[in-house]
Computed example of a mutant assay.
Amino acid sequence: MNTSQDDAARPIRTLGVVGAGKVGLVIARLALGAGYRVLVAGSGEAARIAGQLDAVAPGATAAEASVVARRADAVVLALPLPRYRALPVEALHGKLVIDATNYWWEVDGLQEEFADPLTSTSEIVQGFLPDSRVVKALNHMSYRDLADEARPAGAPGRKAIAIAGDDPGDVAAVARLVDDLGFDVVTAGTLADGIMLQPGGEVFGADVDAAELRAMLDRFTTSQRGLVIARARAQRAQRDEPGPDAAP
């Protein structure tokens, strides 16, 4: 989706979180501490998680996923990846969506679309939400590290989170959010490059500073996982290349 300058420059004041599991609740708590208004949707009715929010993220508001999508300036997806198909597509129209999902084949079962080396899982989410603006972030660090490692800007030993997206304005907006949550930011590239942040790569599970995270991303292309992906994408490009008899 094309992003207008006004949309890209719009600050995030209300953060929505779809998913009330461990990752979603940690993100909600960190966002509250950073001064954001936070709306959280779990599975089922909002009343089911209201008490949980009072205990873990007091100040966050429980709401249905469609309400969270409409009222938030940006929405974090902190739910199991296969559940992306249940997202409220229309309510997310035009919204900045921060994809923190991961594909766990041990839990989700073997699903070919998520294991395809040609496509990052965030590109799949973007395809399902064609009128939203998807940025990959907040997926590669464990919920325990997210909870324990948040530090003010400039603090010694501050850890870093990688983000990937196609629109510079949206990437900048997510970078500001990540910084507010307590982490330095390292940009990984486009949404397709977000495959470097997924399980199977060195970055996944990383709890390191910005310099080391940058080094991990830079050496991805020479890693076993990186070589598999590069080979598959090169073969696709070769197949898609027009033959000598193709019309100009």
Rank of each mutant, 00 (worst) to 15 (best):
N102Q: 04
R37P: 00
A69F: 10
L181D: 08
L197R: 09
W104M: 11
A65R: 09
T3S: 03
V76S: 05
Q235T: 06
L39G: 07
K159F: 06
A188L: 01
G19L: 03
L30E: 09
R144C: 07
A69K: 06
L77S: 07
P11E: 04
W104D: 13
A9M: 11
G19D: 10
V174P: 04
Q198R: 01
G182I: 03
D245S: 14
M141R: 14
I98C: 12
P82C: 03
F114R: 03
R29N: 14
M1Q: 12
R83H: 13
D73N: 00
G44S: 13
I49C: 15
S122N: 04
R133H: 15
I49H: 11
L110H: 14
A147L: 13
G44V: 08
R13I: 07
A172T: 06
I27D: 05
A137M: 03
G154K: 08
A192M: 10
Q224M: 00
R70H: 12
K95R: 12
G169Q: 02
M196P: 02
L227E: 13
P130L: 14
S4V: 06
H93V: 00
P168R: 09
D7G: 06
K159R: 15
L15H: 12
L15G: 08
N2H: 13
L53C: 02
G44Q: 11
P242T: 04
A34M: 10
G201V: 00
L81W: 03
G16R: 05
D207H: 14
A91E: 15
